[in-house]
Design a protein around this nucleic acid. Structure first.
Length: 804
DNA sequence: AAAACTGCATCTCAA
DNA sequence: ATGCAGTTTT
């Protein structure tokens, strides 16, 4: 045993050390919340290396880039004593499931190209939720299926569920017996065809196609098995069927066949933190691990190093209410600490104020605490708004964990769509998005005509457009003006790519240069610039900054890019098949990394700000001070979860995850009234509040407090809080609503708002009516608010008051 | 072909 | 309170 290996075991508990030392054969680590799970995984990786295992034989899989980056960082730190640390670090593969799959699919795409129904090429595009929706709508309109009877969202949900169970359209159709299922089957089949025609995959495909690849290609399977001998999987309780199969294939284990040599697979997880059932995660994967991998060693890490005793006691008391659960004792080494506070608030504004004041007071009382130690959790994204507004008004720095937000902005998606068409000319969804943006006089009618003429040829839309431009065909209904626009579009594209060759002096040398040129030469920049000049709003100015930011992010990618690590570059190739031009390969890598950004990736511990995020995004993190808001029936547990009992248990686990993120200070709140989609409604406190053992928490009811000077901005809404007892009746609901000035109010503005009159809005403040836009039930007015800017409000719903 | 307007449906959670 | 889709207007 080397000295380093010895050092790696030194300050671990006995179970932790056992887990690190168990290197051969299957290992299940049941790691309770805060039990030092990441510590064990990273030590174990370093330990393997210390034993002389080549790092390139080690594969560690996580769910987010953030988790992978942290793991890489910590392993690197553990190896820092060695002079070959850098070489070792580079040999390791620590990545997310989705990124691994994306790489494998690129690398082995040539092996699949022959496959009739699921073959894809290495230059495929990854479609995100928006792209999926756009494609689904298109498919449904082609099939003439009503989107009111069959919402595209739920169609995609059904498809996603099927894919998560490794079911393809054909298998789905076989089991579809009623009308609804048969309709889904039809849509599913067409949607798959459209994806393949666009040479695109959705998120579920990344996993599904990889599982299929490893099952069906002996060559791919043999290669990955020969390469990776030590597999580690984090958050194993959240793996789905596809991920289970991928893991099994990587291990050289056929899940449907009797076992051979036990593989060196180590999975880590906690059944109590399984919160992704809704996206196909199967808790059985971890519960039945010992059956899937006979001779598995099981090690439980029960000691909590994170939370103080009162916080852990509350969490333990809550999770005990889950019936489908093997009991385990949670214990902490951290004695002392204050009990979690539970406060019933008046409404969402009161709640947000209270939470922010609570954080502020903590920081005053404990000088060692900073804003970065604080977090606010909520069940759904809609709840972030009030907290955000309150923090902004208080001048407290905050960040929202929404890593994907940047890439979902309209202007960024536009620029990316151009780049995607460059990387994958078959990508019809992206092409349709930008072909007439900025306006090139190419309308839907022209596009449909071109597409109609190409029907049967199987050509992608861009190829069909090229034929029209070349004069090979002239479909009826396409004007000369439209053809001119198409020609200009195609020429622009070809200038960037050297007509697909990526050769020639006109073609960009670097990725960031290409991105910059695309933004400028596509006309996007000019389009947003003129929009900004016209409206004068800062929101439009912002778009230009965002586009500039995209160039910067391309530059960053470029700096980190390692072509030798790029699987597509290193792919085994048929004789004579050339490697893609380096710039094109880099572009594909960039687009892939952009597509696989997770919300949780945005969390930067060094930001010095309060972090706002959903409970789902909070998994795996810890904060010294945590405020959980919105503990109400219908929110947590969520409305949908209330329908079925097993889902309620998952909601309880979600609540448990939130509580166990807190190290020292925990606040839990609910609001008696909450406005949702514009309507103020009476709520019912979450059942989880009553499940917290009374002696583990400090509870207080401030829901009737009003007239308090801290809430003076609310006075314009008028008095509306009648005393209401706990038993709720329909009559009381209606009266409470009417009193709240909400839905009970007759339609239409209570008073006229002529142009030019002064108004006050509870949130936006004082403003002036600039214009009345329309009439009827949805009459809207443009109102210019001081400091806020111009807003368009629906008079019927807006809480407006005249202030002449 | 593009802009303006209006009725309608709507919010989980996420790679 | 908003965003979308279908419709009407320019």
């Amino acid at each position: 045993m080397t000295d380093l290996a010895d050092t790696l075991l030194r300050d671990l508990t006995e179970p932790q050390a056992q887990a690190v030392r168990h290197t051969e054969g299957p290992l299940l680590i049941l790691a309770a919340a805060g039990s030092g799970k990441t510590r064990v995984i990273t030590r174990r990786i370093a330990y393997l290396i210390a034993l002389g295992i080549p790092p390139w034989q080690i594969l560690a899989l996580t769910f987010t880039n953030k988790a992978a980056a942290e793991m890489r960082e910590r392993v690197h730190h553990l190896l820092s004593g060695r002079d070959d640390a850098e070489r070792l670090r580079r040999g390791l593969t620590i990545t997310t499931f989705h990124a691994l799959c994306a790489r494998l699919l690129r690398r082995y795409a040539p092996l699949m190209e022959g496959a009739p129904r699921w073959g894809i090429r290495g230059d495929y595009t990854i479609y995100d939720t928006d792209d999926q929706t756009a494609l689904m709508k298109r498919v449904m309109s082609d099939l003439q299926i009503s989107t009111t009877n069959f919402p595209p969202r739920s169609m995609l949900g059904a498809v996603s569920n099927a894919k998560n169970e490794l079911k393809d359209a054909e298998a789905f159709a076989r089991e579809a017996h009623d009308f609804h299922a048969r309709t889904v089957a039809k849509v599913f089949e067409k949607y798959e065809k459209a994806l393949r025609a666009a040479n695109a995959v959705d998120f579920d495909d990344l996993l599904l196609l990889t599982a299929r690849l490893l099952r069906e290609s002996a060559e791919a399977r043999a290669e990955v098995q020969a390469r990776w001998r030590y597999l580690m999987i984090d958050e194993y309780q959240d793996t789905n069927r596809a991920q289970f199969v991928i893991a099994a294939q990587l291990c050289g284990v056929d899940p449907d066949a009797p076992p051979g040599t036990p593989p060196n697979v180590c999975v880590v997880g906690d059944p109590d933190q399984s919160i992704y059932g809704w996206r196909g995660a199967d808790i059985k994967n971890i519960l039945d691990f010992e059956e899937h991998y006979p001779a598995a060693r099981v090690i439980a890490l029960g000691q909590n190093f994170r939370s103080t005793a009162p916080i852990l006691a509350a969490a333990d008391g809550l999770i005990r209410h889950n019936k489908q659960r093997k009991h385990k004792d949670l214990f902490t080494s951290r004695s002392g600490g204050r009990k979690p506070e539970v406060v019933l608030c008046r409404d969402e504004h009161h709640e947000a104020r209270l939470a922010v004041d609570w954080l502020r007071r903590l920081l005053e009382e404990h000088p060692e605490l900073a804003w970065k130690d604080c977090a606010i959790f909520y069940r759904n994204n809609a709840l972030s708004r009030v907290a955000e507004d309150t923090l902004r008004a208080s001048g407290i720095p905050y960040v929202i964990a929404r890593g994907t937000a940047f890439y979902q902005r309209e202007e960024i998606k536009d620029a990316l769509a151009y780049l995607r068409v460059v990387a994958n000319p078959a990508d019809d969804v992206s092409l349709r998005r930008i072909i007439n943006k900025p306006a090139r006089k190419i309308g839907d009618a022209s596009l449909d005509a071109v597409e109609g003429a190409a029907v049967g040829t199987g050509l992608p839309l861009l190829a069909a457009i090229r034929r029209v431009c070349a004069g090979a065909v002239r479909p009826e209904g396409v004007s000369g003006v439209a053809i001119g626009g198409m020609q200009r579009f195609v020429e622009t594209l070809d200038r960037w790519t050297g007509a697909g060759s990526f050769m020639g002096s006109e073609v960009s040398g670097s990725l960031s240069e290409l991105v910059d040129r695309v933004i400028k030469e596509s006309g996007l920049e000019a389009m947003y610039k003129s929009a900004a000049a016209k409206s004068g709003a800062d929101a439009e100015e912002n778009r230009l900054d965002n586009l500039a930011e995209l160039v910067t992010s391309a530059k960053d990618f470029e700096a980190e890019y390692d072509p030798t690590a790029d699987a597509a570059q290193a792919a085994p190739r048929e004789a004579g098949a050339p490697a893609p031009p380096p710039l094109l390969a880099m572009l594909r890598g960039f687009l892939e990394s952009v597509a696989l950004v997770a919300d949780a990736d945005a969390i930067d511990p060094a930001s010095g700000a309060v972090t706002l995020m959903t409970l789902h995004a909070a998994k795996g993190l810890e904060f010294r001070c945590v405020a959980m808001i919105g503990l109400e029936e219908g929110l947590l547990p969520s409305m949908r979860a209330l329908e079925a009992d097993p889902n309620a248990e998952e909601e309880r686990r979600l609540c448990f995850v939130g509580i166990t993120r807190a190290m020292e200070h925990l606040l839990i709140t609910s609001a008696k009234y909450r406005a949702s989609r514009g309507l103020r409604e009476r709520t019912i406190p979450s059942r989880f509040l009553s499940e917290l053992p009374k002696d583990t928490i400090e509870i207080s009811d401030q829901s009737d407090a009003f007239g308090d000077d801290t809430f003076d901005d609310d006075r314009h809404e008028g008095p509306r809080y009648e005393p209401v007892d706990n038993v709720d009746t329909a009559g009381r609901m209606a009266r409470a609503r009417a009193a709240a000035g909400g839905p009970g109010r007759p339609a239409g503005p209570a008073q006229p708002f002529p142009v030019g009159c002064a108004v006050r809005h509870p949130q936006f403040g004082v403003g002036k009516v600039v214009a009345l836009l329309s009439s009827g039930s949805n009459a809207r007015a443009q109102i210019q608010f001081r400091g806020v800017g111009t807003k368009t409000l629906v008079l019927q719903y807006a809480r407006l008051e005249r202030v002449d």
